[in-house]
């Protein structure tokens, strides 16, 4: 009569397996093909230590430099809101913690679901605003290609379907829950092949940036 349960069973069974496999293997390949390249030893006499400066930049680069904040406040504030909102929705929503626990065996306390709901709503609105900005800001529009819009879509869909599922806006429930899981699987599958990789590689990038500047005595 209804195949929504079959659909849900597929997405959380074989579908999840496929997505998880591609995600884990893909991310590892991407990280290793970066890291194994390495860099040559630097023979110049260092003015400062690389390690501390690199680690510091890893943290400090999270806060925007004052002048750039003034020049692109929307990108900075919007970027903050949706990244934080996305991470809260992903990691502090109780059912998600249950899922992570079942996959990785680690858990932490969540926050009230209705709070996550409000944050998710703000995140969704912000993501729409970010898309609008990408379509209208001369630089972002100029830089953007299909991949930029594709990654927006696969980031947006889990938020949207999650919101719809939480509020049961699509019937039957297994269908909307399945769509939510499927949208996350889409995100996981595309992750290693797109700029979404920055979620991992920014750590390497910031470290190199900070370390190389730190060697010259500048905290970047």
């Amino acid at each position: 009569m209804s195949t929504s349960i079959d659909f849900l069973l597929w997405v959380r069974g074989p579908g999840f397996d496929i997505a998880l496999f591609i995600f884990v293997v893909g991310v590892l390949i991407r990280l290793l093909e970066v890291l194994i390249l390495g860099r040559k030893a630097d023979y110049s006499e260092p003015r400062g230590a690389e390690l501390g400066a690199g680690l510091l930049t890893l943290v400090t680069r999270t806060a925007p430099e004052g002048g750039s904040f003034k020049r692109s406040p929307f990108t900075v504030v919007g970027g903050y809101i949706w990244h934080i909102g996305f991470l809260i929705s992903l990691f502090l929503f109780v059912p998600h913690i249950e899922l992570i626990d079942s996959v990785l065996g680690i858990r932490w306390p969540g926050i009230a679901s209705n709070l996550v709901d409000a944050i998710a709503a703000v995140t969704i609105v912000t993501l729409v605003a970010m898309l609008f900005s990408r379509l209208t800001h001369p630089v972002k529009r100029f830089l953007s290609g299909p991949e930029d819009y594709l990654t927006w879509v696969v980031t947006f869909l889990p938020m949207l379907t999650g919101y719809l599922a939480y509020h049961r806006m699509i019937d039957p429930y297994p269908l909307v829950l399945g769509l939510h899981i499927l949208s996350v699987e889409l995100l996981m599958v595309l992750f290693p092949f797109t700029k979404l990789m920055h979620a991992f590689t920014f750590i390497i990038a910031r470290w190199y940036n900070g370390a190389m500047a730190g060697r010259r005595g500048v905290q970047s």
């Binding site: 069974g13 999840f16 397996d17 249950e98 996959v103 829950l177 899981i181």
Partner: peptide, 15 residues
């Protein structure tokens, strides 16, 4: 629906 004692949204995964 994947077992009475398995939570609904949690992957039923061998992987």
């Amino acid at each position: 629906a994947g077992g009475f004692y398995n939570a609904l949204s949690i992957p039923d995964s061998d992987l």
